[in-house]
Design a protein around this nucleic acid. Sequence first.
DNA 1: GTCTATACGAAGATAGAC
DNA 2: GTCTATCTTCGTATAGAC
Lengths: 190, 190
Amino acid sequence: MPAATLSRDQVVDRILAAFRRYGYEGSSLSRLSEATGLGRSSLYHYFPNGKEDMASAAMAAVGAWFTQHVLSTLDSREASAIRLQRFAGKLTEYYANGMAPCLMDVFTIGEAGSLFQQHLGGRMRALMALLAGVAEEAGVDKVEAAVRAENAVVAIQGSLIVSRALDSNGPFLRMIENFPAILLGPQPAK
Amino acid sequence: MPAATLSRDQVVDRILAAFRRYGYEGSSLSRLSEATGLGRSSLYHYFPNGKEDMASAAMAAVGAWFTQHVLSTLDSREASAIRLQRFAGKLTEYYANGMAPCLMDVFTIGEAGSLFQQHLGGRMRALMALLAGVAEEAGVDKVEAAVRAENAVVAIQGSLIVSRALDSNGPFLRMIENFPAILLGPQPAK
DNA sequence: GTCTATACGAAGATAGAC
DNA sequence: GTCTATCTTCGTATAGAC
């Protein structure tokens, strides 16, 4: 019933959603077919190398979305705290308030790990570098900024897992609220 | 070739290792058979309900190991900081210096999520309660102790993911070093 | 581009001999 | 308890018609 004419981008978005939800091995072609409304043959038309191509496309799509909507929030002339707040807001959107898994987590498990580890590592490093940059601009020492950027991505990923395990988005939302302080604070005192 | 006579516990340990490494869907019976050195029939002899039974056994095994070796470190009359340091040491062991995934992460993905979410939630809550208790004993306010316990498990889980994504255990080891401070510190200042 | 059909192996599971 | 054999369904992939 998703029927009719989905653009390729829309197809990839649905594939991405399936991978995030079911993982790489858990996303069978049947599920991907169902998720996109496309028959197997159509899927192979778009992605000649099958599942691996679909996963690559999903990675590329999430990369583009992140760059456009999330990372771009860090690139303005406003105060660091404001930018980080906007950044956190976009994270909240992307992670569906903390209940949607991160592809960087899901794809480090199982076969996908070996297939995409390098790519994932690059993404993670790039994100950390950007966040460290924001902290530095706010006057944080270079070394300390790198530490805090690492703490920030650790907090994002960890809060997603804990939220899923508890089936409650509390941990994620608390992380989001505290997010600017992770990078800028000398300690929010809470 | 692992051949001969593995005890049931040893069998379960190998099954657990496979699940942590390949995830639930990624751990096919073939892989589990190979990992244990047992044929399919033998696996079904030990685990009549197949893969789901194996996963339950793995969860139970990791629970027992954690209780015996990790959680027990929190239960002494020594200073909180000392206990947390020992706790962190055991975590390091369990997570193989940060390079072995956590079952709580892996089993929140895909089908395993629906099968074991409740169990996982209970474990996560129990762990947080214990850690919060240690912080309280050290004089941290009850509400703040709960927040810090949550931050602690978030840091554990997040650092594992970031370490895997970067293919470097740096993030995990830094988290371990800082672990007591997460619960006790008014801020380690770095 | 999408459909139907089909191939083929893998996955999960069971039966029965030993 | 383990082995061989078997069964069924599923997963991945391709061929060829429309």
